[in-house]
Structures are given as C-alpha cells and as structure tokens.
C-alpha cells in the first residue's frame, strides 16, 4: 500500500491562478470606477465621490489580500492554506470594520453611498470576472492570451 497524499503535506508549487484573477478584478474595477463614482456623485454629491472611491479601494484591497494569502500559503501546505483562509476571513472582516469605524464620523463620508458601493462593486466585479472564468474553463481554446 502506498502513502496517499494528505492535505497537511501536499503543497502546490507553480502558478497562482488567484493572483491572476484578483489582478483581473482590479483591472475591471478600474474600468468600472468612473461609472460608480459618477452615480454616487449624482446621489450624494462630493461626499458620494469620496465615499465611492474609499469603498472601491476597500473592496479591491480585500480581493488582493485574499488572493495573496491563498497564493503564499498554498506553496507551504494545503492545511495551512485552509487555516489561513478561515482566519484571514475573520481578519479581513475586522480590518474592513476598522476602516469603516475610522471614517464614520468624517465630514466627507456618506455612509449610504459607501455601503452601496461596497456591495455593488464586490458583487458586480465578481459576476463580471465569473463570466470570463466560466468561459475559459468551458472553452479553453477560446481563452484570451496575454500579449
């Protein structure tokens, strides 16, 4: 009987697809930013602009942190990756809470615009990226190449 690989000893070297996905999400976020900022400016004025920028920055940094955590820990052990994802989730929620508490009383913040920006940006960018990922998994031949 041969030893089967266990999650604690298995490590994944090579490319980190989540880094590529998160950079792609950031790129799409840059495309979507003017639209979101403009919508928030219409509804909440200058406060909406600052809130939308702050909210988008929070969401994009959150994606990058999540991807970095998975990429770094997967090179060490899958068990460590699992622990890092779970504790990273708690840590990132705590950081988002801290980031919101720090600015909640600022004169330039609109909490409604900020909250809606966080939800819309997070879900919108994910759905946008999901379409690309689903297409490249289902039809690998159509996967766009990097130039």
């Amino acid at each position: 009987m041969t030893d089967s690989p266990t999650p604690m000893t298995t490590r994944l070297d090579g490319e980190a697809p989540e880094i590529e996905v998160s950079f792609d999400i950031v790129k799409r976020g840059a495309y979507a930013a003017p639209v979101i900022v403009a919508v928030c400016a219409v509804f909440a004025g200058l406060d909406g602009v600052f809130s939308a920028l702050y909210g988008m920055a929070l969401v994009l940094v959150n994606f990058l942190c999540a991807a970095g955590l998975v990429a770094v820990t997967a090179r060490i052990s899958l068990g460590l990756m699992m622990g890092a994802v779970l504790f990273g989730y708690i840590g990132r929620l705590g950081l988002i809470y801290l980031a919101l508490v720090l600015v909640r009383d600022a004169s330039w913040i609109s909490l409604t615009a900020l909250g809606l920006t966080i939800i819309v940006t997070h879900l919108g960018l994910l759905v946008w990226e999901m379409r690309y990922v689903a297409a490249s998994l289902a039809y690998p031949g159509l996967k766009p190449r990097r130039k």
């Binding site: 999540a66 990132r92 939800i119 997070h122 990922v133």
Partner: peptide, 17 residues
C-alpha cells in the same frame, strides 16, 4: 483554486451585505 477563490469571494459577499 480558481473556482475556490471565486466561491470564497461570493460567500464573503453575504457577510459584506
């Protein structure tokens, strides 16, 4: 890993809401 990362982000959206 790709689908896991997207799944984590979608699940996290519930907490963000």
């Amino acid at each position: 890993r790709t689908t896991m990362f997207l799944g984590i982000a979608f699940t996290e959206a519930l907490a963000l809401i």
